Simulated assay, not measured.
Amino acid sequence: MADKLILDEQALRERLTPEQYHICREHGTERAFTGKYWDLKDAGTYRCACCGEALFDADTKFDSGTGWPSFWQPLDQSAVETSQDNSLLMARTEVHCRHCGSHLGHVFADGPAPGGLRYCINSAALDFEAKK
Score class of each variant (00 low, 15 high):
D127M: 12
V95S: 00
D85V: 02
E14P: 05
E94Q: 10
H103V: 00
R118V: 12
G52M: 06
A58N: 01
L104R: 01
Q10E: 15
P69N: 02
D63C: 03
T34I: 11
A49S: 13
S70N: 04
R118A: 08
C120F: 13
H27M: 14
D63I: 02
R118S: 08
L7T: 13
L126A: 05
D57R: 13
G105N: 02
Y37L: 13
S70E: 02
G67S: 01
C51A: 12
C120P: 04
E9I: 11
T45Y: 10
G115F: 01
N122R: 07
P112V: 01
A2G: 10
L75S: 05
A11W: 12
A113Q: 15
E129P: 07
D76E: 09
E53G: 00
G65D: 12
M1R: 03
S78C: 06
E81N: 10
T17M: 05
I6F: 10
T82P: 08
Q77I: 05
F62P: 04
Q10A: 15
A113W: 02
H103N: 01
D8L: 08
I121R: 08
T66S: 15
D85C: 05
A32S: 09
A32P: 11
L117Y: 11
D3S: 14
M1S: 01
L104P: 02
G111E: 06
C48K: 01
Q73K: 15
E14M: 10
D127K: 11
G101I: 06
L5E: 09
D3V: 06
G101C: 06
A58F: 08
R47H: 15
G65L: 15
S70D: 04
S70W: 11
D85S: 07
R15N: 10
F128E: 02
A43N: 14
P74D: 02
V95P: 00
T60M: 04
L126C: 04
M90H: 12
L117N: 10
P18N: 03
C97M: 04
C100T: 00
K131A: 13
D57E: 10
L89R: 06
S83D: 03
E129W: 07
S70A: 14
E19I: 14
R15E: 13
C97L: 09
A113G: 14
L7M: 15
Q73W: 07
A43C: 13
A79F: 06
G101S: 03
L16T: 05
M90F: 09
G65I: 14
W38M: 08
S83Y: 07
E9Q: 15
L89F: 09
I6S: 09
T29D: 06
E53F: 08
Q77P: 12
D110A: 07
F71Y: 05
S87F: 01
A58Y: 05
C50G: 05
W38P: 09
E30A: 08
R13Q: 15
H22W: 11
V95H: 00
T66A: 03
S123K: 02
S64R: 04
L12D: 03
S102D: 03
L104W: 03
P69G: 00
T34H: 13
E81S: 14
C97K: 00
T82H: 09
K36H: 09
Q84I: 15
